[in-house]
């Protein structure tokens, strides 16, 4: 279980997170929605320790994420970045097997390559892709490779940062379905940030809406459409008018 209590983060005068309280139950898929610039990515990076919160606590299974062995902590996570964040200088299989090839529990190269090819197959990519470089792949294929890298070490928790941004609707549907299948299959806890409502409906067990630096609404995905919160309703229906100010 991941618990965030009173998490604050500012960048200069810009107060991005103003006291985020959120609980993600073990094995659940939590999707965090909210407009661009509301701090969704910052929240996710706070959990991973990539950004240090100014105040508040974040715990994983009751342990403060800022204390203890950092490598051991990070080994429990997998992450799919918005743009894939694949290492250009490494081949696809080396990207997928990056964690497997390094650290105290490093695998022999052949074994790591076999695992990488298996994970690539799991996300619908042929073994022939393994020896290509990321620059030779389409955006959708890069997302799949990023997904394969995120699940390569069978993590307990997987984060997905805008998994369908920049993809066509069909490829978005494929990625959403893959994420859902993998999360269910691996029994992992998942935290996804997106503003793509089709992703929300495909991936989420629980939904939380971040607005003005706090969690505005949270609940099961099935209750989202009937929720009375006007901010949530404006966002999920994409209305130009409502309590959330649009920039014209």
């Amino acid at each position: 279980m991941i618990t965030l209590s009173g998490v604050h983060k500012s960048f200069g005068p810009n107060r991005v997170l103003r006291g985020v309280d959120l609980t993600i139950a073990k094995g659940q898929s939590m999707v965090i929605i909210g407009g661009s610039g509301t701090g969704k990515s910052v929240l996710l990076k706070c959990v991973l320790g990539l950004v240090k919160p100014d105040a508040g606590t974040i715990t994983l299974e009751g342990q403060d994420v800022t204390r203890g062995d950092r490598d051991a902590f990070l080994a429990r996570f997998g992450m799919l970045f918005q743009g894939g964040a694949l290492f250009d200088s490494l081949r696809v299989w080396e990207n997928v097997a990056f964690r497997l090839l390094r650290g105290p529990a490093a695998m022999p190269k052949d074994q790591a390559r076999a695992v990488a090819i298996e994970k690539l197959r799991r996300v619908g990519l042929k073994p022939s892709v393994a020896d290509l470089f990321p620059g030779e792949l389409s955006g959708g294929m890069q997302k799949r490779v990023g997904l394969a890298r995120a699940i390569a070490a069978n993590p307990e928790v997987i984060f997905f940062d805008e998994p369908t941004t920049g993809l066509d609707p069909i490829m978005s549907g494929v990625i959403n379905a893959l994420i859902r299948e993998i999360v269910v299959e691996m029994g992992s806890t998942a935290m996804t940030i997106t503003h793509d409502m089709s992703s929300v409906r495909a991936i989420a067990d629980q939904v939380a809406m971040l607005h003005d630096g706090v969690i505005r609404w949270s609940g099961p995905v099935g209750e989202m459409d009937a929720a009375p919160d006007p901010y949530l309703q404006q966002f999920i229906h994409g209305r130009a008018t409502g309590p959330i100010e649009g920039v014209r």
Partner: peptide
């Protein structure tokens, strides 16, 4: 800028 440095950190590197 393409978050590859962040990716390194999440991969315990």
């Amino acid at each position: 800028v393409t978050e590859q440095i962040d990716a390194l950190v999440t991969l315990s590197t």
